[in-house]
Amino acid sequence: MDDALSTEAEMVHARPGRLREFWFYFRENRGAVIGLWIFAAFAFLALFGPWIAPHDATAQFRADTLVPPFWQEGGSWKYILGTDPLGRDMLSRLIVGARYSFFVGVVVVSIAASGGILIGLIAGFAPQWLDSIIMRIMDIILAFPSLLLALVLVAILGPSLTNAMIAIAIVLQPHYVRLTRASVLSEKQKDYVTSARVVGAGYLRLMFITVLPNCLAPIIVQGALSFSTAILDAAALGFLGMGAQPPTPEWGTMLAEAREFILRAWWVVTFPGIAILVTVLAINLMGDGLRDALDPKLKRS
Protein backbone atom coordinates (compact mmCIF):
# COMPACT_ATOMS: atom_id res chain seq x y z
CA MET A 1 0.00 0.00 0.00
CA ASP A 2 3.01 2.20 0.12
CA ASP A 3 3.13 2.20 -3.63
CA ALA A 4 0.17 4.54 -3.83
CA LEU A 5 2.33 7.30 -2.47
CA SER A 6 5.62 6.43 -4.12
CA THR A 7 4.22 6.98 -7.59
CA GLU A 8 4.84 10.66 -7.10
CA ALA A 9 8.53 10.14 -6.57
CA GLU A 10 10.25 12.60 -8.81
CA MET A 11 13.57 12.39 -10.52
CA VAL A 12 16.49 14.12 -8.93
CA HIS A 13 18.74 15.18 -11.71
CA ALA A 14 22.43 15.64 -11.61
CA ARG A 15 23.27 19.24 -10.89
CA PRO A 16 26.85 20.46 -10.75
CA GLY A 17 28.38 20.00 -7.35
CA ARG A 18 29.09 22.90 -5.06
CA LEU A 19 32.79 22.71 -5.82
CA ARG A 20 32.32 22.95 -9.57
CA GLU A 21 29.98 25.86 -9.21
CA PHE A 22 32.45 27.55 -6.89
CA TRP A 23 35.23 27.09 -9.41
CA PHE A 24 33.05 28.49 -12.21
CA TYR A 25 32.44 31.74 -10.38
CA PHE A 26 36.00 31.92 -9.08
CA ARG A 27 37.43 31.47 -12.57
CA GLU A 28 35.32 34.37 -13.82
CA ASN A 29 37.59 36.68 -11.88
CA ARG A 30 40.96 36.65 -13.62
CA GLY A 31 42.74 38.61 -10.88
CA ALA A 32 41.62 36.02 -8.36
CA VAL A 33 43.10 33.19 -10.41
CA ILE A 34 46.43 35.00 -10.69
CA GLY A 35 46.26 35.68 -6.96
CA LEU A 36 45.61 32.03 -6.32
CA TRP A 37 48.70 30.97 -8.32
CA ILE A 38 50.92 33.46 -6.51
CA PHE A 39 49.50 32.33 -3.21
CA ALA A 40 50.20 28.72 -4.15
CA ALA A 41 53.82 29.61 -4.94
CA PHE A 42 54.04 31.49 -1.66
CA ALA A 43 52.69 28.50 0.26
CA PHE A 44 55.14 26.23 -1.56
CA LEU A 45 58.07 28.44 -0.57
CA ALA A 46 56.81 28.56 2.99
CA LEU A 47 56.75 24.78 3.19
CA PHE A 48 59.96 23.94 1.36
CA GLY A 49 61.92 27.22 1.62
CA PRO A 50 65.07 26.00 3.43
CA TRP A 51 65.57 23.23 0.85
CA ILE A 52 65.17 25.54 -2.12
CA ALA A 53 67.17 28.48 -0.92
CA PRO A 54 70.66 28.57 -2.50
CA HIS A 55 72.35 29.51 0.79
CA ASP A 56 71.72 29.26 4.49
CA ALA A 57 69.52 32.24 5.38
CA THR A 58 71.60 33.22 8.38
CA ALA A 59 75.05 32.40 7.01
CA GLN A 60 77.19 35.54 6.83
CA PHE A 61 79.59 35.76 3.93
CA ARG A 62 81.87 38.39 5.44
CA ALA A 63 83.80 38.81 2.22
CA ASP A 64 80.71 39.73 0.19
CA THR A 65 78.78 42.43 2.07
CA LEU A 66 76.33 44.57 0.13
CA VAL A 67 76.87 42.81 -3.20
CA PRO A 68 74.34 44.17 -5.75
CA PRO A 69 71.96 41.91 -7.72
CA PHE A 70 73.48 39.96 -10.60
CA TRP A 71 72.46 42.34 -13.39
CA GLN A 72 74.24 45.27 -11.82
CA GLU A 73 77.91 45.94 -12.02
CA GLY A 74 79.72 44.06 -9.29
CA GLY A 75 76.88 41.58 -8.97
CA SER A 76 77.32 37.87 -9.44
CA TRP A 77 75.20 34.77 -10.06
CA LYS A 78 76.26 33.50 -6.68
CA TYR A 79 74.01 36.02 -4.99
CA ILE A 80 71.16 36.50 -7.45
CA LEU A 81 69.50 39.31 -5.55
CA GLY A 82 72.63 40.51 -3.84
CA THR A 83 73.61 40.43 -0.16
CA ASP A 84 72.80 42.53 2.88
CA PRO A 85 75.24 44.52 5.08
CA LEU A 86 76.23 41.36 6.96
CA GLY A 87 76.86 39.42 3.76
CA ARG A 88 73.71 37.25 3.93
CA ASP A 89 72.14 36.18 0.64
CA MET A 90 68.98 38.26 0.00
CA LEU A 91 67.20 35.63 -2.11
CA SER A 92 67.69 32.93 0.51
CA ARG A 93 66.46 35.23 3.24
CA LEU A 94 63.38 36.17 1.24
CA ILE A 95 62.56 32.54 0.46
CA VAL A 96 62.97 31.44 4.05
CA GLY A 97 61.15 34.56 5.23
CA ALA A 98 58.02 33.43 3.38
CA ARG A 99 57.73 30.77 6.05
CA TYR A 100 57.41 33.36 8.81
CA SER A 101 54.87 35.44 6.98
CA PHE A 102 52.81 32.37 6.15
CA PHE A 103 53.07 31.16 9.71
CA VAL A 104 51.97 34.55 11.00
CA GLY A 105 48.99 34.54 8.66
CA VAL A 106 47.87 31.02 9.56
CA VAL A 107 48.27 31.44 13.30
CA VAL A 108 46.70 34.89 13.47
CA VAL A 109 43.73 33.91 11.34
CA SER A 110 43.17 30.72 13.34
CA ILE A 111 43.26 32.50 16.69
CA ALA A 112 41.22 35.48 15.56
CA ALA A 113 38.66 33.41 13.67
CA SER A 114 38.08 30.75 16.31
CA GLY A 115 37.79 33.29 19.11
CA GLY A 116 35.73 35.67 16.98
CA ILE A 117 33.34 32.98 15.77
CA LEU A 118 32.77 31.72 19.28
CA ILE A 119 32.12 35.18 20.73
CA GLY A 120 29.99 36.11 17.71
CA LEU A 121 27.85 33.00 18.09
CA ILE A 122 27.36 33.73 21.78
CA ALA A 123 26.45 37.34 21.02
CA GLY A 124 23.99 36.25 18.35
CA PHE A 125 22.17 33.85 20.64
CA ALA A 126 22.59 35.68 23.96
CA PRO A 127 19.91 37.80 25.59
CA GLN A 128 20.02 41.43 24.64
CA TRP A 129 22.00 42.68 27.65
CA LEU A 130 24.88 40.23 27.14
CA ASP A 131 24.84 40.90 23.41
CA SER A 132 25.12 44.63 24.11
CA ILE A 133 28.05 44.15 26.50
CA ILE A 134 29.95 41.98 24.02
CA MET A 135 29.36 44.30 21.12
CA ARG A 136 30.33 47.42 23.07
CA ILE A 137 33.63 45.77 24.08
CA MET A 138 34.25 44.95 20.43
CA ASP A 139 33.43 48.54 19.49
CA ILE A 140 36.02 49.75 21.98
CA ILE A 141 38.68 47.50 20.49
CA LEU A 142 37.75 48.72 17.01
CA ALA A 143 37.94 52.33 18.14
CA PHE A 144 41.73 52.09 18.61
CA PRO A 145 43.93 52.40 15.56
CA SER A 146 44.75 48.74 15.06
CA LEU A 147 48.51 49.05 14.71
CA LEU A 148 48.70 51.28 17.77
CA LEU A 149 46.76 48.79 19.84
CA ALA A 150 48.97 45.97 18.62
CA LEU A 151 52.03 48.05 19.58
CA VAL A 152 50.69 48.63 23.07
CA LEU A 153 49.95 44.96 23.50
CA VAL A 154 53.42 43.95 22.31
CA ALA A 155 54.96 46.55 24.58
CA ILE A 156 53.15 44.93 27.50
CA LEU A 157 53.87 41.34 26.48
CA GLY A 158 57.43 41.94 25.33
CA PRO A 159 58.68 42.04 21.72
CA SER A 160 58.75 38.67 19.97
CA LEU A 161 57.08 37.12 16.95
CA THR A 162 54.70 35.07 19.13
CA ASN A 163 53.53 38.08 21.08
CA ALA A 164 53.15 40.08 17.90
CA MET A 165 50.89 37.37 16.51
CA ILE A 166 48.78 37.32 19.66
CA ALA A 167 48.45 41.10 19.54
CA ILE A 168 47.44 41.12 15.88
CA ALA A 169 44.93 38.33 16.50
CA ILE A 170 43.31 40.33 19.28
CA VAL A 171 43.12 43.39 17.07
CA LEU A 172 41.56 41.46 14.18
CA GLN A 173 39.12 39.48 16.25
CA PRO A 174 36.27 42.05 16.51
CA HIS A 175 35.79 41.86 12.73
CA TYR A 176 34.99 38.17 13.04
CA VAL A 177 32.70 38.78 15.98
CA ARG A 178 30.68 41.32 14.07
CA LEU A 179 30.54 39.24 10.93
CA THR A 180 29.51 36.07 12.73
CA ARG A 181 26.91 37.84 14.82
CA ALA A 182 25.40 39.48 11.74
CA SER A 183 25.08 36.21 9.85
CA VAL A 184 23.82 34.39 12.92
CA LEU A 185 21.09 36.98 13.36
CA SER A 186 19.98 36.67 9.75
CA GLU A 187 20.16 32.86 9.73
CA LYS A 188 18.25 32.69 13.00
CA GLN A 189 15.21 34.15 11.26
CA LYS A 190 15.01 31.28 8.82
CA ASP A 191 12.49 28.52 9.11
CA TYR A 192 14.98 25.71 9.36
CA VAL A 193 16.23 27.11 12.66
CA THR A 194 12.66 27.35 13.92
CA SER A 195 12.09 23.78 12.77
CA ALA A 196 15.09 22.66 14.77
CA ARG A 197 13.68 24.45 17.80
CA VAL A 198 10.27 22.82 17.36
CA VAL A 199 12.03 19.48 17.27
CA GLY A 200 13.61 20.40 20.59
CA ALA A 201 17.22 21.26 19.72
CA GLY A 202 19.07 22.93 22.58
CA TYR A 203 21.12 26.11 22.32
CA LEU A 204 24.47 24.37 21.82
CA ARG A 205 23.08 22.24 19.04
CA LEU A 206 21.41 25.23 17.39
CA MET A 207 24.61 27.25 17.58
CA PHE A 208 27.17 24.78 16.36
CA ILE A 209 25.28 22.26 14.27
CA THR A 210 22.35 24.14 12.86
CA VAL A 211 23.47 27.71 12.38
CA LEU A 212 27.27 27.84 12.25
CA PRO A 213 27.82 25.80 9.06
CA ASN A 214 25.51 28.21 7.23
CA CYS A 215 27.48 31.26 8.36
CA LEU A 216 30.87 30.08 7.16
CA ALA A 217 31.00 31.57 3.65
CA PRO A 218 31.52 35.22 4.65
CA ILE A 219 33.85 34.13 7.44
CA ILE A 220 36.08 32.27 4.99
CA VAL A 221 36.26 35.38 2.84
CA GLN A 222 37.12 37.47 5.87
CA GLY A 223 39.76 34.89 6.78
CA ALA A 224 41.48 35.27 3.42
CA LEU A 225 41.42 39.05 3.65
CA SER A 226 42.71 39.20 7.21
CA PHE A 227 45.49 36.78 6.26
CA SER A 228 47.01 39.64 4.29
CA THR A 229 46.30 42.16 7.04
CA ALA A 230 48.11 39.90 9.47
CA ILE A 231 51.17 39.68 7.23
CA LEU A 232 51.16 43.43 6.78
CA ASP A 233 50.78 44.13 10.49
CA ALA A 234 53.45 41.59 11.41
CA ALA A 235 55.81 43.24 8.94
CA ALA A 236 55.00 46.64 10.38
CA LEU A 237 55.65 45.43 13.92
CA GLY A 238 58.85 43.80 12.74
CA PHE A 239 59.92 47.03 11.12
CA LEU A 240 59.31 48.86 14.39
CA GLY A 241 61.40 46.28 16.20
CA MET A 242 58.42 44.88 18.05
CA GLY A 243 57.98 41.69 16.07
CA ALA A 244 60.42 39.01 15.02
CA GLN A 245 63.89 39.72 16.36
CA PRO A 246 67.07 39.61 14.27
CA PRO A 247 68.55 37.50 12.83
CA THR A 248 65.15 35.99 11.89
CA PRO A 249 64.69 36.55 8.15
CA GLU A 250 61.23 38.02 8.60
CA TRP A 251 60.41 40.50 5.81
CA GLY A 252 59.47 43.39 8.08
CA THR A 253 62.52 42.84 10.27
CA MET A 254 64.71 42.71 7.16
CA LEU A 255 63.39 46.12 6.17
CA ALA A 256 64.17 47.50 9.59
CA GLU A 257 67.70 46.15 9.62
CA ALA A 258 68.45 47.60 6.21
CA ARG A 259 66.96 51.01 6.86
CA GLU A 260 70.26 52.88 7.08
CA PHE A 261 71.53 51.46 3.77
CA ILE A 262 68.59 52.66 1.67
CA LEU A 263 70.65 55.22 -0.20
CA ARG A 264 73.74 53.09 -0.70
CA ALA A 265 72.13 49.75 -1.55
CA TRP A 266 68.58 49.99 -2.89
CA TRP A 267 68.13 46.21 -3.10
CA VAL A 268 68.26 45.58 0.62
CA VAL A 269 64.95 47.37 1.13
CA THR A 270 63.29 47.01 -2.26
CA PHE A 271 63.12 43.22 -2.42
CA PRO A 272 61.55 42.60 1.00
CA GLY A 273 59.15 45.45 0.23
CA ILE A 274 58.19 43.90 -3.11
CA ALA A 275 57.78 40.50 -1.46
CA ILE A 276 55.32 41.95 1.04
CA LEU A 277 53.48 43.91 -1.64
CA VAL A 278 53.10 41.01 -4.05
CA THR A 279 51.97 38.56 -1.37
CA VAL A 280 49.43 40.92 0.15
CA LEU A 281 48.10 41.94 -3.25
CA ALA A 282 47.77 38.32 -4.38
CA ILE A 283 45.91 37.33 -1.24
CA ASN A 284 43.56 40.29 -1.53
CA LEU A 285 42.80 39.46 -5.16
CA MET A 286 42.14 35.88 -4.18
CA GLY A 287 39.90 37.04 -1.34
CA ASP A 288 37.85 39.09 -3.78
CA GLY A 289 37.42 36.04 -5.97
CA LEU A 290 36.38 33.97 -2.96
CA ARG A 291 33.80 36.55 -2.04
CA ASP A 292 32.39 36.55 -5.57
CA ALA A 293 32.15 32.80 -5.55
CA LEU A 294 30.95 32.19 -2.00
CA ASP A 295 28.78 35.16 -1.18
CA PRO A 296 25.65 34.84 -3.27
CA LYS A 297 24.50 38.33 -2.39
CA LEU A 298 27.32 39.81 -4.41
CA LYS A 299 27.14 37.27 -7.19
CA ARG A 300 26.56 38.67 -10.61
CA SER A 301 23.51 37.54 -12.64
Partner: peptide
Protein backbone atom coordinates in the same frame (compact mmCIF):
# COMPACT_ATOMS: atom_id res chain seq x y z
CA UNK B 1 6.35 25.88 7.04
CA UNK B 2 5.38 27.70 3.90
CA UNK B 3 8.76 28.14 2.27
CA UNK B 4 10.28 24.79 1.36
CA UNK B 5 13.53 26.53 0.49
CA UNK B 6 14.06 28.09 3.90
CA UNK B 7 12.82 25.31 6.11
CA UNK B 8 15.54 22.74 5.41
CA UNK B 9 19.09 23.27 6.61
Amino acid sequence: FQDPYGSLN
